[in-house]
């Protein structure tokens, strides 16, 4: 019998797509849990236990080993920079990280960039050789250029509808984002068979992102 895998699942948007992908891969995961408020879901028939986490916390659970594996967006992985294995690109929840501003943006003397992703933003502008003040916000990032808190923002763009509605434009794409399967360093060895088996099952049904 295989070891039970503890899986940190991101609550919300990505969960439904991820659980659908698991089902497609042949894992018996009921749709009943798609809207559950339970924090821990036991799935004995799949030999799994889901830990329902806030997406940004998924890498933390996995790094500490309280979850063996997890599903998380590349945006969170880039921002959190945790020591975990990034095993698979699941190809779900595609979007991109971008620099956004008003259409008439011109370079300013003291550039300020507002974002939910301060590490990503600092690193990006440092690599461009630009020193900018990074302002951490927790939501409604699009407000910042509209009311003059920052001249640009760095944020995740899915369809671009919010930007258009607010008269903003995407200036640069930093990287593209999909959800990833990550694993703890120790679990990856101690539960190698179970994790490798899951990877193999998933790999068969992942939409081919390389095309």
């Amino acid at each position: 019998m295989r070891d039970t895998l503890k899986v940190a699942m991101p609550k919300g948007r990505i969960y439904k797509q991820a659980s659908a992908l698991f089902r497609e891969a042949g894992l018996p995961i009921s749709t009943d849990f798609d809207d559950t408020r339970k924090l821990i879901i036991e799935l004995p028939e799949a030999n799994m236990e889901f830990i329902m986490a806030k997406p940004v916390d998924v890498p933390t659970y996995v790094e500490y080993g309280v979850a063996d594996i997890g599903i998380v967006g590349k945006d969170v992985l880039m921002e959190e920079n945790k020591d975990v294995y990034e095993l698979l690109d699941l190809g779900i929840a595609p979007c991109r990280m971008s620099v956004i501003g008003l259409p008439d943006w011109k370079p300013v003397i003291h550039p300020r960039v507002a974002t939910k992703y301060p590490n990503v933003a600092s690193q990006y502008f440092r690599e461009l050789g630009q020193q900018v003040d990074v302002i951490k916000l927790n939501g409604s990032i699009e407000l910042a250029p509209l009311i003059g808190l920052a001249d640009r923002i760095v944020d995740m763009v899915e369809t671009g509808q919010t930007l258009r509605d607010n008269g903003l434009v995407e200036m640069e794409q930093i990287f593209s984002i999909t959800s990833r399967l990550i694993a703890n360093r120790v679990s990856y060895r101690m539960k190698n068979d179970a994790i490798q088996g899951l990877c193999d099952q998933l790999q068969k049904v992942i939409p081919d992102v390389s095309k």
């Binding site: 500490y64 080993g65 020591d83 360093r185 120790v186 060895r189």
Partner: peptide, 10 residues
């Protein structure tokens, strides 16, 4: 590297 069950790092 050596790993022990229940520990998150080697």
């Amino acid at each position: 590297e050596g790993y022990a069950l229940e520990l998150g790092s080697p």
